[in-house]
Amino acid sequence: MALERSEVEKIAHLARLGLDEAELPHTTATLNSILGLIDQMQAVNTDGIEPLAHPLEAVQRLRADAVTETNQRAAYQAIAPAVENGLYLVPKVIE
């Protein structure tokens, strides 16, 4: 399996990466070399082997349902570019 340039453009758009004309061929080649490795792994017979969800042989620890956070809005918003009435302001997202 190999990626076409158009597919790389699409993935870049989904990831909001602005790749310019010069970067596209290089990125396509790099991604394809990763896919080559995956092809190699997929050639291995994995019948009867449980898929791995996480590389660590461990299970998730759960926490008790308790409120442990206090209101730190002022501190968190001190580094925000724009706030108003306690809201974070961002460029308008609908027309």
């Binding site: 108003e84 974070y88 961002v90």
Partner: peptide
């Protein structure tokens, strides 16, 4: 939640 009322042409975000 996104609030699209007019914040000087911006959207307000409540997380």
């Amino acid at each position: 939640k996104s609030l699209h009322e007019d914040f000087h042409g911006m959207s307000g975000i409540d997380l």
